[in-house]
Design a protein around this nucleic acid. Structure first.
Lengths: 240, 240
DNA sequence: CTCCAACGTAAACATATGTTATTGACCTAC
DNA sequence: GTAGGTCAATAACATATGTTTACGTTGGAG
């Protein structure tokens, strides 16, 4: 089975055979987790860096009133913050959305990877920059887009990220999350997410059933959401 | 005049005299900019790292419909992303809110700082982690807090950050931004920001006039916003 | 095969927030 | 000192989204 993490990093830099071997060594023994499992909780002391090899997970925070806001989706190939162990405690939690295979990279191993494999270091920094850019894009969506725009924007984002990692075939992406989860990511209620999805179906932009999303009219989604993919940084600066 | 950037980094790690000299050298010749000046624009090729020594600035994005969302405030001591030059173009803009003194650190100088001064490197990574954590906290606010809660939360955040950098004396913080700017940060309209500020004044939580914010009832703001300062990471993991 | 829980769908109604407009205070340029 | 622009304050009204409730479907556990 392909190691999605390595595949993703290869999209950023050209890795040597030695780089790849080191990454395989570091992520070779993933653990399997059932859905709805917290991999790490807010308040915990940060431990090893998590890398999602299969399945979906998400970062989230729970508010005093019990509501939840999802902050980011982690799809195969994604990993959590690099230097996280410098902080005394986690400021958010990470939970699996589906069955997931996750590798944990101990900080000693990570340090070794970063210092002895400059291309890996660079690729991981790029990945981190893109994650941060995505956080900014979410702030923009939550702050200034209507709910219809937000839904369209998120579906397009996930689709494009899926294409990038080979998760999407043609116009199809497996979207293994409930409308409640979507709602917690979009800052709306599940009822309203449902309304907006119905609108998108009626407009012919998407088909969505049983966890399978089909993008029938990408241009419709782009128009509705005002999508600009620059925040996903598909072009990078050449490696000096 | 104190170099707020050095002061901030000293809050994270113990710097040696040599570290401080290197930082003074790197940020010693700041440029002055008038208010409302774009320091860098979305789409530009990333250049040197920006460090704000005096005055306020903010990161923002403009949407196709012309509305603006502010993504982060940069107060004295703050700097922008470290590895930003790995990306081909900026995904957002940065603008001064007031007269500001800004130093630009060329990437060669930065690389030198990071490789030859491990304490500086560590401090800058911590700063970056906290910035990222703050992005997540903003997502939570925009997604799941009411407008009253959001206003209270932002004021408290700015006040706490101000205290941390010595910008705030006692219960006072200079808040040199208009309600329109606040609105663009909070994802609401200026009219509604005004309503919420009035409510906060009436509740005795704050006083705010001519750019001077007074926190009269921090506990009121905390209660209203459900504020938890963990995302600002005032405690750090001990340096191995 | 059946039951149960989670999920998706829908309608009716409530409300938080946006929209538009007006006015006065303040500041800066001249 | 005056003019013009930005900003804060407030009111009346519009609407997007939340709330509550109900019901049928789906899928997994036993």
């Amino acid at each position: 089975m392909v190691n999605q993490f390595i595949k993703k990093l290869q999209g950023f830099v050209e890795l040597t055979a030695a780089d790849i071997r080191a990454l395989e060594e570091a992520t070779g023994r993933p653990q399997t987790f059932p859905p709805r499992t917290d991999l790490i909780r807010e308040g915990d002391q940060p431990g090893p860096v998590l890398v999602v090899l299969e399945g979906w997970a998400f970062r989230y925070k729970v508010l005093p009133n019990g509501t939840r806001q999802i902050i980011a989706f982690l799809i195969p190939g994604d990993c959590c913050d690099l230097n996280i162990s410098m902080l005394a405690e986690m400021d958010h939690s990470i939970q699996t959305a589906t069955h997931a295979q996750v590798s944990k990279i101990e900080s000693t191993v990570l340090t070794d990877l970063m210092t002895n494999h400059p291309r890996i270091a660079r690729a991981m920094y790029v990945a981190q920059l893109i994650d941060e850019s995505t956080l900014r894009a979410w702030i923009v969506s939550l702050g200034r887009r209507s709910s219809a725009e937000r839904v369209a924007h998120l579906l397009l984002e996930l689709y494009i990220r899926g294409v990038r990692t080979g998760l999407a075939n043609r116009d199809e992406l497996e979207l293994p999350i409930s409308q409640t989860v979507l709602a917690d990511a979009l800052g709306m209620t599940p009822v309203h997410v449902n309304r907006m999805l119905q609108d998108l179906r009626r407009s012919g932009a998407i088909e969505l059933k049983r966890g399978l999303l089909r993008i029938l009219g990408p241009e419709i989604l782009t128009r509705i959401s005002g999508f600009d993919d620059n925040y996903l940084h598909r072009r990078l600066r050449a490696y000096n």
